[in-house]
Design a protein around this nucleic acid. Structure first.
Lengths: 249, 249
DNA sequence: CGCCAGGTTGACACTTTTCAAGCCGCGTGG
DNA sequence: CCACGCGGCTTGAAAAGTGTCAACCTGGCG
């Protein structure tokens, strides 16, 4: 049903939904980064359709056959892996310009779920066509490799978080990382609304939601941040950095 | 000095050190996997030089400019990232046929250290040439993407370990994973010698060496494994699997 | 208007770390 | 060839950090 609605919708205003990377304000951050205008033009000729994902819906799920990677056009996603017994681990949060689905390449099916945390729009990049175009456009190949490599490096960082840092350090790192990414997209680095619940933050950071909540309260008591539900204002960035850097167990 | 020695050595028996993927018994596991004989031949024409790394030496270090990825020909490596304040996190262990250095693509320098845990040999795959050959040989491009994607998936798994599992579950997962990889290389899945110290295992699994040691002792007391220093024999694989699957906090 | 998901906070339990002591095995040097 | 030293490992006891359980609050939505 939902699929039907989407299709209908896509037919109604196909023009509007067909993305033009060339006209997209994310092109410096997203997959086209570093491509010449002519090359971006070629990328635009790929089937590159925008699609809306409602809050709570999945962009893809673990086990689904892999056919495309996705660029977040607007909105916010989490990715998570789930064990046999139902516990799950949030492996990342993705915002505009970031690429999702690369986990699917290895075994031709996705290995995690990508869930929209707010109503979102994504651009679909069929993998087989990306492969073909990569042969024609070496700088696209190179940039795609960089995007994958960056994901590996990001995950190394998360392993560091989870492996050696304690609760408050993890949360400080998380806030600083969010701040930096928002800033890179033109939003205020000092105040923002969280899109995820305490539980999701906790899952990402390897701690329980109560611990997340307590750490927020502690930060607020210490004057580092102001918290009002999902709204966060960073009041003392250097203080946060100090906590983050202090992995002295 | 050491570099000099290596060079001299390489000159002495260049023939022997020049690897032929076509003749390598790892070709089904390593980068050439899935390529046709002719394609493997092209890969062989890449500068593809074998190099020895002594135990304790670095294959590369964080901050070094990135030029090549490496395939482990023999031996054993750890990769680790280090924080400003000197604490470090082991991000992985690599054995024969596995690929190292993909973290370097993103920013043209490596972001972690790769250290040999025993005397090892590696094959150097210059990245720029790999890029070029990928254009000629689409199946190489595809397979390289799979290798990178597999690394992303692997790291997702480690995040799961670190995020939701407790000490003994992590260690069970670690042993089962080693066992499976050794088995895939024709070694016994039931007994092996660890190449890393308790501290390195602990760093990888996000726990202290004492906790690693205690968990080993516990497993032994429960008849799951036999431990003698670095020698491990898995006596009750199903028991280990049960522990591993029991992430019921 | 009432319900409920999401969040906060407290008290207590439990796992893991920390600190400390001692052991073992291996390589080095006498 | 043996003694020594040292890195690596094990084990115990106490401390710390985080999880668990439970109660309660709040805001948004049907």
């Amino acid at each position: 049903m939902s699929a039907n609605l989407n299709t209908t919708h896509a037919r109604l205003d196909l023009g509007a939904l067909k993305t033009a990377c060339a006209a997209c304000n994310l092109r410096e951050i997203c997959l086209p980064a570093g491509l010449s205008p002519e090359e971006i033009d070629k990328l635009d000729h790929l089937v590159y359709v925008r699609r809306k994902i409602k809050r709570g819906d999945a962009l893809y799920r673990a086990g689904t056959t892999f056919e495309a990677i996705y660029a977040v056009r607007s909105g916010f996603f989490k990715t998570r892996v789930t064990t046999q017994d139902g516990r799950d681990q949030v492996t990342g949060f993705s915002m505009a310009g970031e690429i999702l689905g690369m986990d699917g390449i290895s075994h031709d099916e996705y290995t995690c779920d990508a869930i929209a945390l707010e109503d979102s729009e994504i651009c679909t990049i069929p993998y087989s066509q990306l492969e073909k175009l990569s042969i024609e456009v070496p700088s696209l190949q190179r940039h795609f490799h960089k995007v994958m490599s960056r994901e590996i490096v990001r995950e190394n960082g998360v392993m560091m978080l989870l492996g050696v840092m304690r609760a408050e350090e993890r949360l400080a790192a998380f806030l600083l990382n969010l701040s930096q990414r928002l800033s890179a997209r033109g939003y205020s680095p000092l105040e923002f609304n969280l899109r995820m619940t305490r539980e999701e933050i906790g899952s990402y950071l390897g701690m329980k939601l109560e611990t997340v909540s307590r750490s927020f309260s502690k930060f607020q008591a210490d004057g580092l941040i102001a918290v009002d539900q999902k709204y966060i204002r960073l009041q003392d960035i250097d203080g946060l950095r100090e906590i983050y850097a202090h992995h002295t167990r």
